[in-house]
């Protein structure tokens, strides 16, 4: 068990390193003048001396591998550089914005799992054909709607027409409801789609027939036999869903004018604040790695066929 954990941790570190490298390549090596980006649009007014100073400060005259080595070394020490816009350290900037976004993402995740699971279970359980058809088409519709549009519709109806919940801001739980619903919709639809599909597959498996032949009832077969098998494919999606959810915050926080990592990202892209963008990419990779690790540790508990020593 300890050997397994150690190996998994090592894998996680490798993924993070690779994510760092990929983002370094994407952000600093692609065509685009990183100098002018780092000058933050001041190149028109800057004197040659100032430009040289900036070049020296960022080590832009160094060969690429040295730049990379420096950046990697700093990152290992927990330093992801400074924001070109505010001059604050990237790590602190992100850490300050994170709690708001985590609360939002957490709420959305719970909503998505409950809602998606309920739709999938109801759709596969009902014997009313029409109801089943309607329920099965819900996820497809949910996935097809642009998140920012759904948010705006909710604001329009709930906040302005009914005057129920705040349309924007970070104040209190009430301000969390609409953004969380907006975020949960595509994720919940994805969960419902996968779960409904695997439930349908599982319910047609011969072992379900064995259970029926024993005289087991429908509820028992659905929950005790099929659901556990069907949740396995859904579980493997968890890391992807969590990552997508996190990044849906870019759109949702913009629509609802909430402070958080999403807004930070949108602003950073807008001002081409590459250090912050790279910080967010690494954050997303960390989230992915952590969720994937948790899923991997959970998996053998749910599926005896997967040995712990794999």
């Amino acid at each position: 068990m300890r050997g397994y954990l150690l190996r998994r941790l090592l894998q996680a570190v490798v993924v993070l390193w690779a994510a760092f490298t990929v983002s370094f390549v994407v952000l600093y090596l692609l065509p685009g003048d990183s100098l002018s980006i780092r000058l933050g649009g001041l190149e028109g007014t800057a004197t040659p001396a100032q430009i040289d100073a900036v070049r020296a400060e960022y080590g832009l005259d160094d060969p690429l591998y040295l730049q990379y080595a420096h950046a990697l070394g700093d990152a290992l020490g927990g330093d992801l550089g400074r924001s070109a816009q505010t001059g604050a350290p990237v790590v602190r900037t992100i850490a300050d914005a994170l709690p708001q976004t985590l609360a939002l993402t957490g709420c959305a995740m719970v909503l998505a799992v409950l809602g998606g699971g309920a739709v999938a279970l109801a759709a596969t359980f009902t014997r009313v054909r029409a109801l089943r058809q309607v329920l099965l088409s819900l996820p497809a519709i949910g996935i097809s709607m642009p998140g920012f549009w759904v948010g705006l519709l909710l604001v329009q109806v709930v906040s302005f027409q009914w005057g129920l919940l705040p349309a924007m801001g970070n104040e209190g739980f009430e301000s969390l409801v609409l953004p969380a619903i907006t975020m949960a919709l595509p994720a919940g639809a994805m969960i419902a789609q996968v779960l409904a599909k695997s439930l349908t597959t599982e319910l047609a498996e011969p072992y379900v027939e064995t259970a029926r032949a024993k005289g087991a009832g429908r509820v028992r077969i659905h929950l005790r036999h099929a659901l556990r098998n069907a949740s396995l494919p859904a579980l493997t999606l968890a890391a992807v869903v969590a990552g997508n959810l996190l990044m849906e915050s870019v759109v949702v926080e913009t629509v609802f004018s909430r402070a958080g990592v999403g807004r930070l990202t949108a602003a950073a892209v807008d001002t081409q604040d590459l250090a912050v963008v790279q910080g967010v990419v690494l954050l997303a990779a960390v989230v992915f790695v952590v969720v994937a690790l948790v899923v991997d540790l959970l998996y053998p508990l749910l599926d005896p066929r997967v040995g712990r020593t794999v």
Partner: peptide, 11 residues
């Protein structure tokens, strides 16, 4: 491992 939207944003 990097969400697609984020990757697009970075690009």
């Amino acid at each position: 491992a990097i969400p697609r939207l984020l990757l697009s944003l970075a690009l």
